[in-house]
Each structure stands twice: as structure tokens, then as C-alpha cells.
Design a binder for these strands. Structure first.
Length: 287
DNA sequence: TGTCTTCGATCTTCCTGCTA
DNA sequence: TAGCAGGAAGATCGAAGACA
């Protein structure tokens, strides 16, 4: 009776024996070896990419285990209620910490990497942005820059309208979570008659998807340089998931904004609600 | 010519320190 | 406490050179 395939009931290695990993390494002789990544952290990274980026893993697993226990009640008869509860809670805490760590770490790495690279994607070939957008600074992005403003302008708004443009730039006009930016559409063209037309298939999203899942160098098909297994291969990923599309769109959107911190509760970018709005649409059978 | 080894490039992951 | 920046190490694989 093992609700989750966990080899041992030991706490995470980093907390074992009260010695942190760097101290362990310092005590070891010879070349430093990278600590073996816990499989749950490894899976957690992929979980955040393609299953759900913002959900509470703790809540998800707690509820899931509760349901599973109900279904398997007959097999658990040999344990007391207290034992079952204690057993489940012990595993849930350990597992969720590891998976959450993986999901958060993957997101942080993607945010960091795409922050710089996305400038290349939005810069027309052979040209430069005027004014220049620093690679490591975000203050000059969002509605503080003409080019990123154009990309972030909500679909349906007329960016050529001076009044709308001014209100968006000075914050008088707030972009709602379900007002998707025009960069989600091919050629920045939103078709009010057919909102699905060219949605979620524009170059920035394709580049971002490749950057995360098939390696940064795979974006340039003419000169692939990757010699190392990409994320998709590492995790046996053979197809696109709805969540991965939403995740990539959210990351690209965040990289274009001036927001400094990728926070669940950030009211400026509202990344979580944006992510959920895409998922809801893709999950809607009517759509 | 085929095999093996070495080197370098790329990618993923993790760590530390810092900041809000 | 969460997230970011910078950096480093391990894994992987192609290219190049050495050698039988």
C-alpha cells in the first residue's frame, strides 16, 4: 500500500543530518560533483511546464490522495485512521515540497533566460530598437517603450488611436486579465469576426516554446547547435499540451512587460489569471 | 578506414547572495 | 519569504586528431 511511488520515507537530502549540500561538498575531496537531483524536483520542473504552472501542488496532492484513499478504502482497512492520516500527511508534505521546488525553479530559470533573449526575437532583422532596450533591465519595457507597447496592446484596441495609446501608457486604461495582447496573434492582426484566426501561433510564441522545450539554439533552424538533450527529450514529451502553451504565452508576456518580479499576486501583470484565462479557453469545448 | 580519445560548445540544473 | 541575478558544474554530443 503505497499511494505514491517513493522509494524511501526519508526527508529531502538537503536537510539530512542537518548538513547543507554545499558543506557536504566542501568536506568531500576531489572535483565537485553536482548533487544528484531528486527525481521529484526533476518531475516538478516538467510539471510546471506542461501540466500546471500556478496551482498549489500541496492542495492538488492532498485532494488527490483523499480521493484515492476513498477508492481504496478496502485495502486500507488494516491501518488505523490515525496511521493512514499520518502516513498521507508525511508523504504529501515531502512530495509537494520537492515538486513545488522543481516547478518554481524551472519557472525562475525560464524567466531569467527569456528576459534577455526575447529582445532579439522582437527586434526586426537587420535593425535596432530605438530607443535600445537593455538586456538585463525591464524598466524600459512594457508600456514604457513603443515597440513592446505595440506587442502588449490588447487585441481589439486600436493602437493607432492616440487617446487609447496615451491612456494605456499612463495607466488610466488598465489591461484586464482576459484582454489578451496582440502579440498572441500572427502579424499582430486580431480578427474580431474570427477571434481564433492566427491565435497562439505567432513567431514570438513559437520561439519561446522552442527556447523552453527544444533548446534555445533550435529557434534558428538553419544553424542548430544543440548537442545536449533538450527539455522535451529529457521528459519524454512528444506533443504540445494546453498548459505548456499557456505557460509559454505567460512567460513571453511577462518578459515583454516592465514588471520586475514574477509574482502570483502581482496585480500589474496578473500572470496567474492570464495563464488561467488561456487554459480556460483551450479547455472550453465550445471554443 | 575504422575506432578511440580529447576538446569544446551547448544546455540544464543548482547554488549563493541580494532585494523587495 | 519569494523571486532574481550571476555563476558554476554536470551531462551530452559533435568535431577533430591520434593511432592501429
Amino acid at each position: 500500500m503505497n499511494p505514491v511511488n517513493v522509494p524511501d520515507a526519508a526527508p529531502p537530502k538537503s536537510s539530512m543530518m542537518g548538513v547543507k549540500q554545499p558543506q557536504l561538498n566542501a568536506l568531500q575531496r576531489g572535483p565537485r560533483k553536482q548533487p544528484v537531483q531528486d527525481p521529484l524536483v526533476h518531475h516538478g520542473r516538467h510539471f510546471g511546464h506542461v501540466i500546471h504552472s500556478f496551482c498549489s501542488v500541496l492542495t492538488l496532492l492532498t485532494n488527490g490522495l483523499a480521493m484515492m484513499c476513498e477508492l481504496e478504502d478496502r485495502n486500507l482497512e488494516m491501518f488505523s485512521d490515525y496511521e493512514r492520516k499520518e502516513y498521507s500527511v508525511f508523504y504529501v508534505i515531502a512530495i509537494t515540497e520537492l515538486i513545488q521546488r522543481g516547478a518554481n525553479g524551472a519557472r525562475a530559470d525560464d524567466t531569467k533566460g527569456m528576459k534577455c533573449t526575447i529582445i532579439d526575437w522582437i527586434t526586426p532583422k537587420g535593425q535596432t530598437l530605438n530607443p535600445h532596450i537593455p538586456c538585463n533591465a525591464k524598466s524600459a519595457r512594457g508600456f514604457n517603450h513603443e515597440h513592446t507597447s505595440t506587442l502588449l496592446c490588447p487585441a481589439g484596441y486600436d493602437w493607432s488611436n492616440a487617446e487609447i495609446k496615451e491612456k494605456l501608457c499612463n495607466g488610466q486604461l488598465r489591461v484586464a486579465r482576459d484582454q489578451w495582447p496582440i502579440f498572441l496573434y500572427a502579424n499582430y492582426a486580431y480578427d474580431a469576426e474570427d477571434p481564433w484566426n492566427s491565435l497562439l501561433c505567432y513567431g514570438i510564441l513559437i520561439s519561446a516554446y522552442k527556447y523552453i522545450f527544444t533548446s534555445p539554439s533550435s529557434i534558428d533552424l538553419e544553424e542548430p547547435k544543440a548537442t545536449c538533450s533538450c527539455n522535451a527529450r529529457n521528459h519524454g514529451m512528444h506533443s504540445v499540451t494546453k498548459a505548456s502553451i499557456a505557460y509559454v504565452a505567460t512567460q513571453a508576456r511577462f518578459a515583454l512587460t516592465s514588471a520586475q518580479v514574477f509574482s502570483h499576486t502581482d496585480l500589474l501583470t496578473d500572470s496567474e489569471q492570464f495563464y488561467n484565462s488561456i487554459l480556460e479557453l483551450l479547455d472550453d469545448p465550445d471554443e
